[in-house]
Simulated assay, not measured.
Amino acid sequence: MTRPERARRLLEEHGLTYAEEAGFRLRNTPSPLYRLLTLCVLLSARIKAGIAVSAARELSAAGMRTPRAMARASWQDRVDALGRAHYRRYDESSATALGDGAELLLDRYRGDLRRLRAEADGDPGRIRGLLREFPRIGPVGADIFSREAQGVWPELRPAFGTRARDAAARLDLPKTSGGLARLVAGEDLPRLAAALVRAEQAE
């Protein structure tokens, strides 16, 4: 099986992005971008990815799909939503981080992550750096955001991150982001990055 064929098989078997699993279609508009940021905050804790995704869905179901709605919700409302998804142990600190992050987004970018993108002026490293100014977003969270958002922010391409590249090496696929990017069309890069991470988790 050739490497492009192996990549296509990965897309078929594991090519579901975290945004898709959380129940929303990522677009370059404020609410989906904010929901991705929320998801990255939740995925950054030492907790199973499936639980973090469920927590994102609960927050969305409770109406917290914009930074203004997140900031207006009470701390207890956030804790309760996380608890319904069994997001235990990190529920209280994550509820605080989400509230503080929403306030930061409103104050600095008027609630729109596209303004963060504009401030970065097309520099992927700067985008990651600005993302890491949000509570709980570290290198892992910035990597996840970049992997998912490269579908709508092309300047992030190719974004695979350490985990995806390590998985690629074990699957005898290219070990560099550039090499992986040549295996699929540009619009499929987020799905390939997700597929590599999921394939690693399935081992």
Rank of each mutant, 00 (worst) to 15 (best):
G63W: 07
P154N: 13
R117H: 03
F160I: 01
R65T: 14
G63I: 07
R136V: 09
E58N: 05
G99L: 01
F145D: 04
S94A: 12
G122T: 13
A61C: 03
G179P: 08
G111F: 02
A19S: 12
T38H: 00
F145V: 04
L171S: 13
A19T: 05
E5T: 08
D143V: 04
D121I: 06
S146R: 00
G125N: 11
T66P: 05
D172S: 15
V140I: 13
G141L: 03
E92Q: 14
G63F: 07
R126W: 00
Y109H: 10
W153T: 08
M1G: 10
A85D: 03
E103Q: 14
D123H: 06
L37G: 00
V140L: 14
W75A: 03
E92W: 11
V152T: 13
E92H: 12
P124K: 07
D100P: 04
G99K: 04
A169G: 08
M64L: 15
G83W: 03
A55T: 03
S31L: 00
L192G: 05
F145E: 05
P190N: 06
G63Y: 06
H86Q: 06
D100E: 14
E187F: 10
A199W: 00
R115G: 01
E13G: 06
L36R: 00
D121Q: 13
E20C: 07
D80N: 13
T38V: 15
A168Q: 02
A7H: 08
D172K: 11
T176D: 13
I144H: 04
H86T: 01
E148C: 08
E133F: 11
R27K: 14
M64G: 04
G129W: 14
L26A: 06
A185Q: 10
S44V: 09
P30E: 01
F145N: 06
R68V: 01
R46D: 07
A168E: 01
W153D: 04
G141I: 02
T96C: 03
I137L: 11
Q76A: 09
G179V: 12
E103V: 08
V140S: 14
Y34A: 03
F134V: 09
R89D: 06
E58R: 08
D91A: 12
T29M: 11
D80E: 10
P30R: 07
R157D: 03
R89S: 10
L104S: 11
D172Q: 15
S74W: 05
L130H: 14
G23A: 07
R117S: 05
E148G: 11
R27V: 09
L104C: 09
R132T: 07
D77P: 07
R165S: 00
L33Y: 01
D143T: 13
E21K: 15
Q201S: 13
S146M: 02
Q201A: 15
D91I: 05
L130C: 14
T96A: 12
T29L: 14
A181K: 04
A61G: 10
E20N: 02
A52F: 00
A199R: 05
A168K: 01
G23Y: 15
E133K: 14
D112Q: 03
P32H: 07
R8C: 02
A199L: 02
T29C: 09
V184M: 13
D100T: 11
R25W: 05
L106P: 06
